[in-house]
Write a protein that binds this DNA or RNA. Structure first.
Length: 423
DNA sequence: TCTGGGGTCCTAGGACCC
DNA sequence: TCTGGGGTCCTAGGACCC
């Protein structure tokens, strides 16, 4: 009888830090930190930085003393570089299974069911070696009968060097031992709220959660928790999704580089986000049926608080920038309240569908001219750089734009920034 | 002075209908 | 002296993920 299908999860170690190191070997062995947009908080840490006690999401301004004391090398996030490196990793992984699911920028699930006589631990090692050789990125691999167990095994491989970077929990005795030593809060899908609830009934390890009755779980939480229990028992509830499902929504949001208090600036910022959202829609060949514009004050300040948000239907559905800007501006006008110190704004698009599937009505205005205009604008911006052609509504000065003071070069995607080796 | 951005899924509750 | 029952659709908000 065939056993359950092994699923592997390969995860890049400290991915953004590793990307920076590939192109700057001097960063090897020293503490490296990558900051979020706006240089706001920590989002990727080298092992040296983790050892200093710096946590994911720690605000950068609080880290200043530690950064100086330990000579931490700090980078703004460079998503162009990380996205391109991720693509290269995916390419290498294609060698190892016909069925892969790119789960996030640094994680991929692979169906390892096709090789019944292969030593999976050794195969995992071969995969790590290939990714390292092709891209320079170090990885760890977890293997198990379900996605949740593969994730768990991966975390074990990362934390515990005795596994040599690959942890396989297909065998029941190994799995049982690993689950006993694994904290419930580290399980995929168990967040802060659920951890607290489970602690209330004395459930703190993965083994205890596995043995909890699904009925009890359902009454405490949702169907998600029930599924997690089944997955911990080795019964797959989550399929490998090798074709990406149609995305449902899209967001363009940013914190400001400084506080915004005037409606004119807010209109500019929201128009910019709407404009970017349009580009993204067209890039994916999509149109949107619903647009939300929002802006709000800082929850971290003592200021009076205000969260504003307005939704509007887009009918006919659209990806046309002037249409999106008009809709977003109406939302801002309707929601605007003077006298607050706003720190963030954004545009959300929902009810997405492929442009060719969009419903039409008898009374749709002809859109061919608009589409051509947008296509031309997109081409110019690709060729000569983002922002070469833009709608005036998005502003000229953009005093509200974010900071990024420690940006590394786009080594792999911008000709002027390709690394140069001198003889 | 200074705390990211972009997603998904689930549930409860209201509106509405027959 | 008394106010149905069941269904769908939509939305807001919570929780979680990377």
């Amino acid at each position: 009888m065939a056993g359950p299908t092994p699923i592997a999860l390969i995860d890049c170690n400290n991915f953004y830090v590793s990307c920076e190191r590939v192109f700057n070997p001097r960063l090897e062995g020293v503490p490296v930190l990558v900051l979020s947009n706006n240089d706001g908080c920590a989002i990727a840490r080298s092992n040296e930085v983790k050892a200093l006690g710096i946590k994911m999401g720690d605000p950068a301004f609080k880290l200043r003393p530690l950064i100086e004391k330990h000579g931490i090398r700090v980078f703004s996030s460079n998503y162009v570089l990380y996205g391109d490196m991720s693509r290269r990793v995916q390419e290498a992984l294609g060698q190892f299974s016909p069925e892969t699911e790119c789960y996030s920028i640094d994680e991929t699930f692979l169906d390892f069911g096709g090789f019944p006589h292969v030593d999976l631990w050794a195969y995992g090692q071969e995969m790590r070696g290939t990714v390292q050789k092709w891209t320079g990125i170090p990885t760890c691999v977890g293997i198990g009968p379900t996605k949740t167990l593969a994730k768990l095994a991966n975390a074990v491989a990362k934390k515990n060097p005795t596994f040599g970077g690959v942890c396989d929990v297909m065998e029941e005795p190994v799995r049982a031992a690993v689950l006993r030593a694994f904290e419930v809060s580290d399980i995929w899908g168990i967040g802060r709220a659920t951890t607290a609830k489970l602690a209330g009934i004395g459930t703190t390890t993965a083994a205890q959660l596995r043995d909890l009755s699904p009925k009890r779980a359902r009454s405490m939480g949702t169907v998600v928790l029930e599924r997690t229990i089944m997955e911990l028992r080795g019964l797959p509830c989550l399929a490998l999704e090798d074709v990406a499902p149609q995305r449902k929504g899209m967001a363009c949001t940013r914190s400001f580089g400084r506080v915004v208090t005037s409606k004119a600036e807010m209109l500019e910022a929201v128009a910019s986000h709407a404009s970017r959202a349009g580009e993204k829609l067209r890039q994916h060949g999509l149109v949107a049926g619903k647009l939300t514009a929002f802006f709000h004050t800082s929850p971290h300040r003592d200021d009076p608080q205000h969260h504003a948000s307005r939704v509007t239907r887009l009918f006919p559905m659209s990806s046309d920038t002037p249409t999106l800007i008009t809709a977003a501006s109406r939302c801002v006008e309707a929601a605007w309240r003077q006298g607050f110190r706003y720190v963030k704004a954004g545009v959300l698009l929902d009810d997405l569908c492929r442009a060719e599937d969009a419903p039409r009505t008898l009374f749709d205005a002809p859109t061919e001219r608009e589409a051509k205009c947008m296509a031309t604008m997109d081409q110019l911006n690709v060729r000569f750089g983002r922002g070469t052609v833009a709608l005036a509504a998005t502003g000229i000065e953009k005093g509200w734009k974010l900071r990024a003071e420690h940006h590394s070069p786009c080594y792999t995607t911008r000709l002027a920034e390709v690394p140069v080796v001198r003889a």
